[in-house]
Design a protein around this nucleic acid. Sequence first.
DNA 1: CGGTACGTTGAGTCATATCAACCATAGTGG
DNA 2: CCACTATGGTTGATATGACTCAACGTACCG
Lengths: 236, 236
Amino acid sequence: MKQQEVPVPYCDKCAYETGSIFKHLSPEEVDMINFEKEFRQYKRGEILYNEGSRISGFFCIHSGIIKVFKTGLDGKEQIIRFAKSGEIIAYRSVLSNELACTSARVIEDCAVCFIPSEILISLVKSNSTFAHELLKLACHELGEANSFITDIAQKTVRERLAEILLLLVNDFGLDDQNYLQIALTREELANIVGTATESVIRLLSEFKNDGFLELQGRKIKILSTKGLEKISNVFN
Amino acid sequence: MKQQEVPVPYCDKCAYETGSIFKHLSPEEVDMINFEKEFRQYKRGEILYNEGSRISGFFCIHSGIIKVFKTGLDGKEQIIRFAKSGEIIAYRSVLSNELACTSARVIEDCAVCFIPSEILISLVKSNSTFAHELLKLACHELGEANSFITDIAQKTVRERLAEILLLLVNDFGLDDQNYLQIALTREELANIVGTATESVIRLLSEFKNDGFLELQGRKIKILSTKGLEKISNVFN
DNA sequence: CGGTACGTTGAGTCATATCAACCATAGTGG
DNA sequence: CCACTATGGTTGATATGACTCAACGTACCG
């Protein structure tokens, strides 16, 4: 849990005008958060919190990318989701008052605000709109989890990999040269899809041969989302 | 959507003293629910709601068992969860204001209360304890979904089947002869585990040969939860 | 008594995991 | 500056878990 003593830049993600969950708070409530929160910076590879630990607060991502994962058999990671600017993590454990069911590790150097549990709970109690929005968020994630369960259970690795690539395009976008704006190791890709690293490597090079993408190390250049859609069977 | 005109039995599941989510309501709020709710009875095989539809309320189960599932490729069902007495379903869609992401079908004849969406929303707004409890519920389900994702992605069909059997024992219990208190077809078991019907049949008969259970049609007699635990690798 | 849904078994196939070897790259310390 | 090591990526060979297909048995139901 590294916490650097650097000049704290203004964090606009916990402000009430932004697109984050905090937009449903009053200026006074945002002030309270800004007073209580702790600004932190983490480098790639660092852990924000560990599965099984009791969590004393949640994180709002200012910048960077974080992977949220569970550790399964033989320590193999299953990536549950990614969090990027404006999103919050660890709120599940805080709200359900359970131990963390996942761990979180930095994928791209990040700056986050750490906000104590009590703040979240008290806001849920005092601001019903905020509570409703949190419910929407949790219920939406639940819907996504249900879809993912169905996909993993029914689709082939090939279909899932294509689908995950499209999902990453959707979540992180492409730069001006059509490079995917998130760089993952082959192992990380495998740990989303739920397969072996070697399988990801082989399938990626198949997709390359099919002309759907190009590979430059970890950077993936998307040439044909249409092609990937066809492979992934996205429309059931 | 069958709705029988029978004398409405007293439904104690929507009462504020029970173990259901409604225990966090005031007597007045419970009265409101009782006034607005609609009592319905369904037989095995009937559908409560369909994936993709807009839902105008949620269901509280008085008695019986319901399976909640998604329809994937080729119409193959993926069972997401079961709901039994005292539990609520379809609240996800109501709260997230999204189309239903699952369907619900009766496994064991059931009696349910149908409660309009507006009631749920207004209670979330007016009763912050209730909102917090709903958040706990949703977040808890989210944690379970995450575990399930990891299991499906990493465990073998054999391990998953053993684990699901234990989970069913936990949720529905055993009768005095150690028979599992929920009767599923082989296909339904397969649709939880995420495998083919034939695989379930073969594995069940393996478990039988190993002395862990006995089979009487759909009734499964559990002889050794220890054995099933060993197979399932429950402790990671 | 035929029909329909469910259960069972066997045989063959295939996607994917596993194992092993090897290469590329970058960071480290002597 | 150069071995040294660690990490990640790639490829090939092999094994196998699980699916598919097909046939047949069983049981209930009108």
